[in-house]
Nucleic acid binder design. Structure first.
Length: 320
DNA sequence: AAGTGGAGCAACCGCACCATG
DNA sequence: ACATGGTGCGGTTGCTCCACT
């Protein structure tokens, strides 16, 4: 037996909203708010609409500061980066683009951006006979175009899932210094150390003595670190220079693969993902939502509760 | 001018999660 | 512990517009 419908479908209007309906809904919410009950709202203002429909109309069209119109190049980059990192979590992606709605971004991705990427893939296929590597090459090319701000945001997303009671510290034991990546609100907890070099020792530059810049905190994301230091050196550059030292080793592995590995490790830590494919082993696993779908983000409270009950997890499989 | 097909987008649908009693 | 109802999310549908023939 299915659940009861949220409204009487026979007696509600469907389809496009009229200007009068828009005005009614907007005026009411601006004056009274939603009252915490979307289902009851249309009855209060005499609208023959389903509560869910009202909510959608308000969130996607009527509420203030909604940005309509074409997407900028920077927004394209952010969407691509986040999609390739976390998949179709449109609401999370939308949270990084002020004024854009998840519906907008979803539509934009499905109708334009995806095709843009597919066009790139076709171009690759025409110029390459390497079969299975094409997809990876496409992603690599696309992501290599994407600059640090997007990566910082992606990193921040993962950081935002991490409970602040367990300050997450990315350590590099070979360099004898570390960077605290999450604020702690409770000094009684021991920081959980997360060795980002342990699964890729061959990529570590033993002679690299560059300090890690101090993470700062973005005013709009006060609980997550932001990776720009005072000199404007960004995470992308730091990944290039700091722990993996690809230039020094002449290694053809990209910073972005390392970044994905780190992100995947954080994912495993927080969500207990059993996806064990590693970017070093697989040609298609890095951030590919089809090859290795990311687990859904655990609610902050659940994650925190789990850690408080069970303590920090064992070292993640992806980094053993 | 009329027909057709594709693109873009607003809106709907169903499911999962969460709060509450 | 369970049932119920509200909310949020992602996938899908269907309407409108426009370019092309």
């Amino acid at each position: 037996m299915g659940r009861a419908p949220c409204c009487d479908k026979a007696n509600v209007k469907r389809g496009p909203w009229s200007p009068e309906e828009d005005a009614k809904l907007k005026a009411y919410i601006e004056e009274h708010g939603t009252g915490g009950n979307w289902i009851a709202l249309p009855h209060k203002i005499g609208l023959k609409r389903c509560g869910k429909s009202c909510r959608l109309r308000w969130l996607n069209y009527l509420r203030p500061n909604i940005k309509h119109g074409s997407f900028s190049e920077e927004e394209d980059h952010i969407i691509c980066t986040l999609y390739l990192s976390i998949g179709s979590r449109w609401s999370i992606i939308a949270a990084q683009l002020p004024g854009r709605t998840d519906n907008d971004i979803k539509n934009y991705w499905n109708t334009r951006l995806k095709k843009k990427l597919m066009g790139k893939q076709r171009k690759d296929q025409q110029s390459s006979k390497r079969g299975g590597l094409i997809k990876q090459e496409m992603k690599r090319e696309v992501l290599e175009d994407l600059k640090a701000p997007s990566l910082c945001m992606s990193m921040n997303l993962y950081q935002s899932y991490w409970p602040t009671e367990f300050p997450l510290i990315l350590t590099n034991p070979n360099q004898h210094h570390h960077q605290e990546l999450a604020k702690t609100q409770d000094p009684t907890f021991e920081p959980y150390q997360f060795d980002i070099t342990s699964n890729q020792p061959e990529l570590f530059n033993q002679n690299n003595d560059k300090p890690i810049p101090t993470a700062s905190y973005h005013p709009q994301l006060p609980n997550t670190p932001y990776f720009l230091n005072g000199d404007g050196i960004n995470l992308f550059q730091e990944f290039n220079n700091y722990p993996f030292g690809i230039n020094e080793f002449g290694c053809n592995t990209t910073q972005l693969e390392q970044f994905d590995g780190l992100v995947g490790g954080l994912d495993s830590l927080v969500n207990g993902s059993n996806c064990t494919s590693s970017s070093a082993e697989s040609t298609t696993s890095w951030g590919d939502p089809l090859a290795c779908p990311p687990p859904p983000p655990m609610a902050y409270d659940d994650c925190r509760r789990g850690l408080l009950q069970n303590g920090p997890p064992e070292h993640p499989s992806r980094f053993q």
